[in-house]
Nucleic acid binder design. Structure first.
Ligand SMILES: Nc1ccn([C@H]2C[C@H](O)[C@@H](COP(=O)(O)OP(=O)(O)OP(=O)(O)O)O2)c(=O)n1
Ligand SMILES: [Mg+2]
Ligand SMILES: [Mg+2]
Ligand SMILES: [Mg+2]
Length: 781
DNA sequence: TACATACAC
DNA sequence: TATGGTGTATGTA
């Protein structure tokens, strides 16, 4: 059954790396002169670190493809036949369960940020523009797309492609506000809509349609307010509102009455690719009556959005989310497309659908499939047996579903947020101080974000360093230590103050916390305060250790943030144990209800300077902290992919290197890094240098990278503790200021729009002071 | 669990 | 001069 081997991958774009070449998989970018555009992009990219980075990535992918092809070559036809039987059995079952009963709609705003900016500054009308910075564009309008300018392209390249390009800085608050407006309208059609991003939602309008049938006509009647000066569409290549004006979709237009109302939303000033002027000639109606079909309801919805916000949306209507999503792009901008709830219609639609259009199929998958001669969903279906042998189960299951035009109709949010993180790209950082500074900043940002969600945190550090002994220290903040990985991999236990909620089973972790907090507030306001809370954590400023050369010997202040007990001779381990106990006791209920004893976050800090091959350069240099509430309430804070000063060893003083690296990096690792820095790198040995490898400290005194004072010790534990203390001191000082704001920060005003439900979009991240950032200067060497 | 990769907006 | 930030899923070891 694997008869097609013909389609050799074909050097589609010869020597141009697929990652670098213009990615035109986006509405409004059809039929561009890719050749020309790619030349310009290449010119601006070649030689950069970015280019090298992509080269590596590309090679990796090629290797992966190579491997797959080899595997394929080994397959016998009997294996394939056997697989075919299995796969088809599954296919039958999937088919049996096909659900055509729901009408799912995907709504997506057109060039969202760009449209908002244009609306608010008419100067921009009719001009190619993008939102973003010279370093990165968030999106572009459709006019700019004709030049190849698109989201995720750096602005300076956009300028090269289109010298007249206007770049407008983003204003997220504005987009957020608009988003809220839009969702109000959406909610009228499906109060349980599922927001996917600021500009995008899924809805299930099945119920609405049913109800709609019973409505009097007035209820579907709208007056067109003419305040909108049309022509935000100068940029659009095609913009007809009604399906009738879209020739290419006749094939799949719903059989349902779609012309049961005049329904024109907007006059056009661009010539559509067909003679459609008839409609324009008609007198401009001010009153519009929308019909009762799905199309009509969605037209109405889009009409109302436009009336309300002066922004256009596109929509897809289909039996499931996957298809609806594809459809919403089909007639972008300002258009819609329907796949009726009919199996044949679905199959017809899917047959020629390029797999790349499907959500979840990206560049890499596309390239791999290409190598297997698979381009559209029909190919995908035909090769199902082969794919089942080449890919992991979940992957080929997904492929099979895609090729059958199947997808979920469920709009419920599964969990809620699972992680919270903050990260920044930075210029090569030369000094450890800068690294620490960055880490500290990230930690602070993250903690701030947690606060916004109503969580107050306390951090317990329990890392293991070279000597294998735990290093614990309590602060009310994240404690930053060496951002260097593997060996000095830090583990911090972060303790959340809030009590567990009464047991909202299977709520998201963050929601549990929120609920707990609300409950808490409630209780304290009714005088019944059985929780030992916030304040506990909030202010251990008094506990800031002194920063002196000999403080290394100073004992941390062992005051329990839960019960306030203080005991000098607990010892660190004892202290942590105590906190654990304290936490598990604190919920009023005892702890049988919540299996999670206390609230434990674990914070790991790993600075991935790459023990591996291309880790160092293969990645953007980023510093990242993540909290991950896993099911048992452990949170990870990961500081990740932090470049080492070692990369630029020459810029780093020896003392600094020593301070930062001495016992942290083994000689081997260091050498390895240097090798890589010289681009000579090769090896891949997973030199995971276990945490215990104390080694290499040998001689010389250690210099604290924070206070720069030489420490009179060769004991790493002591030294590390000193560094922690030094760092914490700064952090805690910063915190003093923060505390004042705390109460006001609290109200996140979450804009989720999902009424009773979970806040979908975490409160937006605050704008960062650009200063301390970033931007990749180099990916390596 | 840790890490890497892929994907989306 | 210059190539983002947040979040999810999944495979592998
Ligand atoms: N890599 C990206 C992609 C998008 N966005 C932002 C800007 C977009 O305006 C918004 C919505 O993303 P879309 O993919 O829906 O793109 P647009 O709405 O801009 O254009 P389209 O008309 O193709 O939907 O998200 C972003 O910041 N970074
Ligand atoms: Mg959009
Ligand atoms: Mg979108
Ligand atoms: Mg895709």
């Amino acid at each position: 059954m694997d008869q097609k081997d013909e389609n050799e991958p074909g050097p589609s774009n010869n020597n141009i790396l697929y990652r670098i070449a213009l990615n035109d998989n986006k509405a409004g970018m059809e039929g561009l002169d890719k050749e020309k555009i790619n030349k310009i992009i290449m010119g601006a990219t070649k030689g950069s670190r970015y280019y090298i980075h992509l080269t590596n990535v590309d090679q990796q992918v090629d290797q992966r493809i190579e491997k797959i092809l080899q595997q394929k070559a080994l397959l016998t036809s009997s294996q394939i036949n056997e697989a075919q039987i299995q796969v088809d059995r599954l296919a039958m079952e999937l088919e049996r369960r096909r659900d055509l009963s729901r009408v799912i709609v995907h709504v997506d705003m057109d060039a969202f940020y760009a449209s908002v900016e244009t609306r608010d500054n008419p100067e921009l009308k009719g001009k190619p523009m993008a939102v973003g910075t010279m370093s990165m564009l968030s999106t572009s309008n459709y006019l700019a797309r004709r030049f190849g300018v698109r989201a995720s392209m750096p602005g300076f390249i956009g300028k090269k492609l289109c010298p007249d390009l206007i770049i407008v800085p983003p204003d997220f608050n504005k987009y957020q506000a608009v988003c809220k407006e839009i969702r109000k309208v959406i909610a009228e059609y499906d109060p349980s809509y599922l927001p996917m991003s600021l500009d995008e939602v899924y809805m299930d309008i099945t119920d609405h349609l049913e109800e709609r049938l019973t409505w009097p006509e007035e209820r579907r009647t709208y007056v067109k307010a003419d305040n909108v000066q049309k022509d935000n569409s100068t940029e659009a290549g095609v913009v007809m509102t009604t399906e009738t004006s879209k020739p290419e979709q006749t094939q799949c237009t719903s059989p349902v009455l779609f012309e049961d109302s005049p329904s024109f939303l907007e006059e056009q000033n661009l010539s559509p690719p067909m003679p459609d002027t008839a409609k324009l000639e008609k007198p401009m109606e001010k009153v519009i009556v929308f019909g009762t079909s799905a199309e009509e309801a969605v037209k109405e919805l889009r009409f109302r959005i436009e009336q309300k916000t002066s922004l256009t949306a596109s929509a897809g209507i289909a039996p499931n989310k996957r298809l609806a999503k594809v459809c919403s792009e089909k007639n972008k901008p300002n258009g819609q497309y329907t796949i009726p709830n009919d199996k044949q219609a679905v199959m017809d639609f899917v047959k020629d659908l390029p797999i790349r259009k499907v959500l979840g199929i990206g560049e890499v998958t596309e390239k791999m499939m290409n190598a297997l001669g698979i381009k559209n969903c029909a190919d995908l279906y035909q090769q199902r047996a082969l794919l089942s042998l080449l890919f992991p189960e979940t992957t080929w299951h997904n492929f099979l579903n895609i090729s059958l035009g199947l997808g979920s109709t469920n709009l419920e949010r599964v969990g809620g947020r699972k992680t919270m993180s903050t990260e920044r790209t930075f210029n090569e950082i030369s000094s450890p101080e800068e690294q620490y500074e960055l880490c500290r900043e990230l930690c602070k940002d993250l903690a701030d974000d947690l606060l916004k969600e109503g969580l107050k945190v306390c951090v317990r550090v329990s890392g293991f360093i070279s000597d294998g002994k735990p290093q614990n220290l309590i602060t009310n903040f994240l404690c930053v230590r060496r951002p260097i990985k593997k060996i000095s991999l830090e583990t911090m236990d972060k303790v959340v103050q809030e009590m567990p909620a009464p047991c909202p089973q299977r709520e998201s972790f963050f929601n549990q916390k929120r609920a707990a907090r609300q409950q808490e507030l409630l209780q304290s306001s009714t005088g019944k305060d059985n929780t030992i809370k916030d304040q506990t954590v909030t202010n251990p400023l008094s506990e800031v250790p002194k920063n002196d050369a000999d403080e290394a010997k100073e004992k941390p202040d062992f005051t329990c943030p839960i019960c306030f007990m203080k005991q000098e001779d607990w010892g660190l381990e004892g202290f942590n144990k105590h906190i654990d106990e304290c936490l598990s006791k604190s919920p009023s209920s005892g702890y049988s209800e919540m299996p999670n004893k206390g609230e434990h976050f674990q914070r790991k800090m790993t600075a991935n300077n790459g023990g591996h091959e291309n880790n160092i350069h293969a990645n953007n240099i980023k510093n990242k902290i993540v909290t991950i509430p896993s099911c048992d309430d452990l949170n990870d804070f990961i500081i990740d992919k932090n470049t080492l000063n070692a990369i630029q060893g020459n810029q780093v003083s020896e003392a600094d290197q020593k301070a930062c690296n001495s016992e942290i990096l083994s000689e081997d690792v260091l050498n390895n890094i240097k090798k890589q820095a010289d681009l000579k790198d090769i090896n891949k040995p997973t030199m995971s240098t276990p945490p215990s490898s104390s080694g290499c400290i040998r001689d010389s005194a250690l210099i604290c990278p924070v206070c720069n004072i030489q420490q009179d010790t060769t004991d790493l534990t002591t030294f590390n503790r000193h560094v922690d203390i030094c760092l914490n001191k700064g952090i805690l000082e910063e915190l003093k200021d923060d505390k004042k704001n705390m109460e006001t920060i609290h109200a996140p005003a979450h804009q989720s729009g999902r009424p009773g439900s979970t806040p979908q979009n975490p409160a937006s991240k605050k704008a960062r002071t650009s200063r301390s950032s970033n931007t990749i200067k180099k990916f390596f060497k």
